[in-house]
């Protein structure tokens, strides 16, 4: 077995205004990594680069230990990919689209696909353009799962879905991970989903990775600190992304143990951060 199921080193890509620079991401087998960032931060670009749908300027991407361009076919056979707003031949039925796609996979399991269709309540004789957004996503996921992939790469799989479908989807991902050889890499700007099931979280902003860490560690060591606006200067040095009004300030603290040892926190309100808070404060201007 190779070291990491996904290994990205020094990935860079420029497009007009936008630049992805020196992106490094590592994911081991058996875990779920959430990829968080604002719209336009570079999530979709990174994912498309992994799938060789966009040509990189520089850097290295290895999936299952193999180069993502040289071994593209091998990799695509073992990766289940779902794009942001899944794509099909819209005028044809689900059944036709699947019959077409399945011919290209080495390990297509049609029995599994039929099972998933029933489970997801998808009518395979419906035309793609008659399906709702949630249905399309589930169809794409069913196809992605039916060729027995080892890695699922999903771009914003839950956006635009109602909470019930979202929950179903998260359940499916957790089921997938029961096999500790498999991993999931998914991007989302709905951070609560990643907060639920993510093992690792990677934050990206304006084309740069700003944090990549075990989710638990992040949520334990980082804290939201609130206090009287007058005091803000006492702590300013160690505060990240300060939000300030006339009467109070709110900021993020990175290593709370160290912070607690250094300062008197009795007049401060300390809270557990959400991943949203972390993204917000880390990306605040002036950081």
């Amino acid at each position: 077995m190779e070291d990491n199921i996904l290994e990205i080193r020094g990935l860079s890509k420029s497009y007009g205004d936008f630049r992805l620079s020196e992106v490094n991401i590592s994911l081991t087998r058996g875990y779920i990594m959430g990829f968080i960032g604002a719209n336009g931060a570079g999530k979709t670009t990174t994912i498309k680069l992994i799938m060789n749908m966009v040509k990189k300027d520089s850097g290295e991407i290895k999936v299952f230990g193999r180069d993502h361009v040289k071994d593209e076919l091998y990799i695509k056979n073992k990766v289940g990919y779902v794009s942001e707003q899944p794509v099909f031949y819209e005028n044809e039925t689900v059944a036709w689209n699947v019959n077409f796609a399945k011919k290209f996979y080495d390990r297509w399991d049609h029995a599994l696909f039929e099972e998933l269709l029933i489970k997801f309540k998808i009518d395979k004789f419906k035309k793609i353009n008659q399906l709702s957004k949630g249905m399309k996503m589930k169809t794409a996921l069913a196809i992605a799962l039916s060729h027995h992939p080892e890695l699922l790469i999903l771009d914003e799989p839950t956006s635009g879905l109602d909470p019930i479908v979202r929950d179903e989807l998260l359940g499916i991902l957790m089921e997938f991970i029961q096999d500790e050889n498999k991993s999931v890499f998914f991007s989302s700007h709905i951070t609560s989903d990643i907060e639920k099931i993510g093992d690792y979280v990677t934050f990206i902003d304006k084309g740069k990775i700003i944090l990549s860490e075990e989710k638990d560690t992040i949520l334990e060591e980082w804290k939201i600190v609130k206090g009287d606006a007058i005091q803000v200067d006492n702590y300013k040095q160690d505060l990240i992304g300060i939000e300030q009004t006339k009467s109070y300030f709110k900021a993020l603290v990175k290593d709370f143990h160290a912070f607690k040892a250094k300062y008197d926190i009795s007049s401060l309100v300390i809270e557990k951060p959400s991943l949203d808070d972390i993204l917000l404060h880390l990306t605040k201007k002036g950081n």
């Binding site: 058996g30 875990y31 029961q178 639920k196 993510g198 638990d216």
Partner: peptide, 11 residues
């Protein structure tokens, strides 16, 4: 299994 049941991270 527990991670899946509780819907929290394996880690």
């Amino acid at each position: 299994q527990l991670a899946q049941d509780l819907k929290i991270s394996v880690i």
